[in-house]
Design a protein around this nucleic acid. Sequence first.
DNA 1: CTCTTGACTGAGG
DNA 2: GCCTCAGCCAAGA
Length: 109
Amino acid sequence: MKPETLNFFDKVYEVARLIPYGRVTSYGAIAKYLGAARSSRMVGYAMNGSHGKDVPAHRVVNRKGLLTGKHHFGGTNIMQQLLESEGVEVEELQVKNFETYFWDPVKEL
DNA sequence: CTCTTGACTGAGG
DNA sequence: GCCTCAGCCAAGA
């Protein structure tokens, strides 16, 4: 299929789906991979429609490893529990050893 | 068309 | 390292 036909949102979803199990990445990393490094906010904005799709949005956090989007997972600590169930240690909405779990699509793909 | 909203980021103090 | 400010840009009203 032609990538040109894919919307910005769709591209975000595809990259998010490529995030390995037990790993996390940042909005900026995804944006950069898409060639829109300055549209990091759009990545998060796009995740609003990620529900109902196979997008592991819980593996996407901000550059500090903070689970800024947890409010979009039902309002509770669902996002954190999802990560912990994958082996990612999370403490107070923040991923521990973030650099260790960090997965950069630009480098890994 | 203009204006607002945001799951962000980098630079400066 | 933390806090604050400004820039970024797509989508929706």
